[in-house]
Write a protein that binds this DNA or RNA. Structure first.
Length: 220
DNA sequence: CACCAGGCAAGTA
DNA sequence: TACTTGCATGGT
């Protein structure tokens, strides 16, 4: 099982290799939230198309999304896939924002981390990863985002037992690492970037940089 | 053509 | 509680 030292070493190696990644790719906190929902089990390239379509129609604000009917919204975000489901999820998101915070995201982010996480998780369509993405990349709260990439990379390198789920992995990172938003921001970005770059074809993931880097730097 | 992508909720036993 | 299934487009 990975320990604190392993995690710090992985971070150090990836950061040394890829540098600062400046995530999340979005122009505003609200765009982060929308992107977090649209990217659920979906390739980011498809999400970009949907976000562009929303921008073209000036729909990237809570009030604008609230005002539009669900079917039109669905058609607009169609390239991101699951578009009927995601239109509903965006609708529940903006209802939440308007009801709780008058659509003011600054106000939302003023909540304490545990309270806000619970509130986000109570919104239909926001699960653990989406909530954590919003907390970290829209509000800069210190949470680690555990996702499919994180799990895949740790598994491939045999750093965790096969049956370790994403929630357990999240707990691992959160207990072993300092609660620092910048660290968690970079770390998740680096893991996703690594996965996107080197683990495209899933069962094979031939040249995984981690292994190469670990080899190059010797045994941990 | 087959398979996959930065999940989540609802249904079943 | 612990599985299973539906949701869907676009890239490789």
């Amino acid at each position: 099982m990975v320990c604190r030292k392993d995690l710090l070493k992985i971070y150090e190696l990836l950061h040394g290799y890829f540098g600062d990644l400046h995530w999340w790719p979005a122009d505003s906190p609200f765009e982060v939230m929308v992107g977090a929902i649209l990217t659920q089990n979906t390739a980011w390239t498809n999400v970009e198309k949907a976000i562009s379509a929303l921008k073209d129609r000036n729909l990237l604000s809570p009030t604008a999304l609230f005002g539009i009917d669900e079917e039109t919204l669905a058609e607009t975000i169609r390239p991101s896939g699951y578009y009927h489901v995601k239109a509903k999820r965006l609708k529940s998101l903006v209802r939440f924002l308007l009801e709780q915070y008058s659509g003011n995201i600054e106000m939302m982010c003023a909540e304490t981390l545990p309270i806000l996480r619970e509130k986000l998780l109570s919104v239909r369509g926001i699960g653990p990863e989406t909530a954590d993405s919003i907390l970290l990349y829209a509000c800069r709260k210190p949470v680690f985002i555990s996702d499919a990439y994180t799990q895949r990379i740790l598994r491939r390198h045999a750093l965790i037992p096969e049956d370790t789920d994403v929630a357990q992995i999240r707990a691992l990172f959160m207990t072993h690492l300092p609660h620092n938003a910048s660290l968690f921001n970079q770390f998740h970005a680096l893991l996703v970037y690594t996965g996107k770059t080197f683990c495209r074809k899933i069962p094979k993931c031939t040249p995984c940089p981690l292994r190469i880097l670990l080899k190059e730097t010797g045994p941990r």
